[in-house]
Simulated scan of single mutants.
Amino acid sequence: MKKAFWGVFLLVSFAGFLTIYFIWPKGEDLPVLDKVKNFQLEDVHSEIYDINNNKVKLVAFFYTNCPDVCPLTMVDFKVLQERLKESGLFGEKVHLVAITLDPEYDTAEVLQHYASAFEADSIGWKWLRGTSEETSAIAKDFNMQYAKLENDFFLHSITMYLLDKNNNVRALYDMASVKNSVDTEEILDDMKILVGGTR
């Protein structure tokens, strides 16, 4: 039964990604794929984070008990953090945004400890949590699918979202895996386009 659920879940997620990828016009570098509604969530290093902040944002959903995809992706976020600092974009024009899917376990203290393991700089790398209801609504707005399994593990899609200053979704990327890291160079190039720079 569980194997069947996994199969159907992954098939639906993959079909949705392929639909967006193949039917969307390829005439421009970063077409508008969707728009995200405004939301506010707890920033575990500050108070409240408002997504409507005139920043370019790379958004990833994760949870701290994730055994592979999430921590591997956060390693690549650390690389992006350094590259963005070198480019003068970090914090000032671009935010990295990590939203937990498991706010019940991932308290502010847990997330602060987790962030420190990746040497995250809270000036431009935001770690967010909300209620379970808020998380579900925001994930749905991103067309991001997830489900809680046994032993505090989650099954979740592995898409990351690049938002422009108006919270339009302008690009989609895969999170990291054991075989493939995040394409940080591509993401950095796309971020530069959205903040008005060049490739």
Score class of each variant (00 low, 15 high):
Lys2Glu: 14
Lys3Ala: 04
Phe5Asp: 12
Trp6Ala: 14
Gly7Gln: 11
Gly7Tyr: 10
Val8Tyr: 15
Val8His: 14
Val12Gln: 08
Val12Met: 13
Ser13Lys: 09
Ser13His: 10
Phe14Ser: 14
Phe14Pro: 11
Phe17Glu: 01
Thr19Phe: 14
Phe22Arg: 08
Phe22His: 05
Phe22Met: 06
Ile23Leu: 13
Trp24Met: 09
Trp24Phe: 12
Gly27Val: 02
Glu28Gly: 02
Leu33Gln: 04
Lys35Gln: 15
Lys37Met: 04
Asn38Gly: 08
Phe39Asn: 07
Leu41Lys: 09
Val44Asp: 01
His45Ala: 03
Glu47Ser: 12
Glu47Tyr: 11
Ile48Arg: 15
Ile48His: 13
Ile48Gly: 03
Ile48Val: 13
Asp50Trp: 10
Ile51Asn: 00
Lys55Thr: 03
Lys57Gly: 00
Leu58Tyr: 04
Ala60Tyr: 14
Phe62Asn: 06
Cys70Val: 00
Thr73Cys: 06
Met74Cys: 06
Val75Pro: 05
Asp76Leu: 08
Phe77Ala: 01
Phe77His: 08
Lys78Ser: 15
Val79Asp: 03
Val79Tyr: 15
Arg83Tyr: 12
Arg83Leu: 07
Leu84Ile: 08
Leu84Thr: 04
Leu84Phe: 07
Glu86Thr: 09
Glu86Arg: 12
Gly88Lys: 13
Gly88Phe: 11
Leu89Gln: 11
Glu92Arg: 15
Val94Asp: 00
Leu96Ile: 08
Ala98Leu: 03
Ala98Val: 00
Ile99Val: 08
Glu104Met: 07
Glu104Phe: 12
Tyr105Val: 13
Asp106Val: 04
Asp106His: 03
Ala108Ser: 15
Glu109Lys: 07
Glu109Cys: 01
Ser116Gln: 12
Phe118Lys: 14
Ala120His: 13
Asp121Ala: 07
Asp121Cys: 07
Asp121Pro: 03
Ile123Gln: 13
Thr131Leu: 01
Glu133Tyr: 13
Ala137Ser: 10
Ala137His: 09
Ala137Lys: 15
Ile138Pro: 03
Ile138Trp: 11
Ala139His: 11
Lys140Ile: 01
Asp141Phe: 10
Asp141Val: 13
Phe142Asp: 11
Phe142Lys: 15
Asn143Ala: 07
Asn143Pro: 01
Asn143Gly: 05
Met144Cys: 00
Met144His: 06
Tyr146His: 11
Tyr146Met: 07
Tyr146Ser: 12
Lys148Met: 05
Leu149Arg: 14
Glu150Gln: 12
Glu150Met: 11
Glu150Ala: 14
Glu150Leu: 11
Glu150Gly: 07
Glu150Asp: 13
Phe153Pro: 00
His156Thr: 07
His156Glu: 08
Ile158Asp: 10
Tyr161Leu: 00
Tyr161Ala: 02
Leu163Met: 05
Asn168His: 14
Val169Cys: 01
Val169Met: 01
Arg170Asp: 01
Tyr173Ile: 00
Ser177Arg: 10
Val178Tyr: 05
Asn180Asp: 09
Asn180Lys: 15
Ser181Ile: 00
Ser181Trp: 08
Val182Ile: 09
Asp183Asn: 12
Asp183Gly: 04
Asp183Ser: 04
Thr184Leu: 03
Thr184Ser: 04
Thr184Arg: 10
Glu185Ser: 02
Glu185Gly: 06
Glu185Cys: 10
Glu185His: 11
Glu186Leu: 14
Glu186Asp: 06
Leu188Ile: 04
Lys192Glu: 00
Ile193Tyr: 09
Gly196Phe: 03
Gly196Asp: 02
Gly197Met: 02
Gly197Arg: 07
Arg199Trp: 10
Arg199Met: 02
